[in-house]
């Protein structure tokens, strides 16, 4: 497999949480070939779902139920993005969908 991992970035409160734990805020995480959902990846990293509003997959905001595939660029966004961007970027919608959404291919 030429793209076995995802690169994961953590922002805002998630960045602070990771720093408190003494961990890196940009991580390489190996995924199974079929990928995992955003919620599953958050679980693998021990990130509380209650703190997460959405997940960027390849620079587009997705809900936590979105399927992340090896090779994707991923970033977790905590609750609390200020500005109209929460709406303009789709974070608000992603947060409302949460993990209930159907798995969607990357």
């Amino acid at each position: 497999m030429d793209r076995p991992a995802v690169t994961v970035r953590l922002f805002g409160a998630l960045y602070a949480l990771q720093k408190e734990r003494g961990g890196p805020t940009v991580l390489e995480v190996e995924l199974p070939p079929e990928g995992v959902t955003g919620a599953e990846l958050a679980g693998m990293l021990d990130l509380p779902l209650s703190m997460i509003e959405g997940v960027f997959c390849n620079r587009t905001v997705r809900p936590l139920g979105h399927q992340l595939m090896p090779g994707d660029r991923v970033a977790f966004v905590p609750e609390g993005t200020p500005g109209p961007h929460r709406f303009f970027l789709g974070l608000y919608a992603a947060g409302k969908e949460g993990v209930e959404t159907e798995k969607t291919p990357s």
């Binding site: 922002f11 805002g12 960027f56 905001v61 966004v77 993005t81 961007h85 970027l89």
Partner: peptide, 10 residues
């Protein structure tokens, strides 16, 4: 706090 988020959004 927006810098990383808007950057990630491209």
């Amino acid at each position: 706090v927006l810098a990383n988020i808007i950057n990630e959004a491209g």
